[in-house]
């Protein structure tokens, strides 16, 4: 039997063209800001979160995942009325966890992808709750379980085709 000395991390590690690395999150941020004006129900979907998870699991580098998530989150903060850092921390943590989980599971599998996006959407909501309550002392911020479950499910629906499209742009390192 032939043994390989290449780790799973190295085998499944992908890279991206710098243009794609820059443009994909930017397009997601723009769509997230512009589309809900016409289709308000799209506010349930979090495109920047999905793209953070995609890049994190594809690169399988927790540092890259955390940095990508933080930058995207800070940009999101700029478009809202939240202080800078709220979405930055939440997306950074999600990017880190996504990259770490990417080592352990086959993230090319459809079911794993759905489970990953669903779970990480809820993780992001949890982190946002902790930030609002413990760091900002915002008593008006409430956990909305039903709304968060709907949001997580909507993210899964959008993530499946979006991952399939983005898969075409990845290159094996």
């Amino acid at each position: 039997m032939e043994h390989s000395y290449t780790s799973r991390q190295e085998m499944d590690k992908y890279g991206f063209n710098p243009g794609v690395t820059l443009l994909a999150p930017l397009v997601c941020l723009l769509l997230q800001a512009a589309m809900p004006k016409t289709f308000p129900w799209l506010l349930h979907v979090d495109l920047p979160l999905i793209v953070t998870i995609f890049f994190a699991v594809s690169r399988r580098s927790p540092i890259a995942g955390a940095v990508t998530g933080t930058v995207i989150g800070l940009f999101q903060d700029g478009l809202t009325n939240h202080p800078f850092g709220v979405d930055g921390i939440a997306n950074g943590v999600v990017g880190y966890i996504a990259a770490s989980v990417g080592f352990a599971v086959d993230v090319d599998n459809l079911v794993n992808r759905i489970l990953l996006v669903f779970t990480l959407s809820l993780v992001q909501d949890g982190v946002l709750y902790v930030i609002a309550h413990w760091l900002l002392g915002d008593v008006t911020y409430r956990a909305l379980p039903l709304q968060e479950l709907i949001g997580a499910a909507a993210n899964c629906v959008v993530a499946v085709p979006m991952f399939a499209v983005l898969d075409r742009f990845r290159t094996r390192d």
Binding site: P62, P83, F84, G85, I89, Y96, I131, L135
Partner: peptide
């Protein structure tokens, strides 16, 4: 512990930024 340390550093920086803003 390079990976968790980077994450902690990123989070701490943003927590400080939040504290300053609030």
């Amino acid at each position: 512990f390079k990976n968790p340390l980077v994450l902690i550093a990123l989070v701490l920086l943003q927590v400080l930024a939040l504290a300053v803003q609030v």
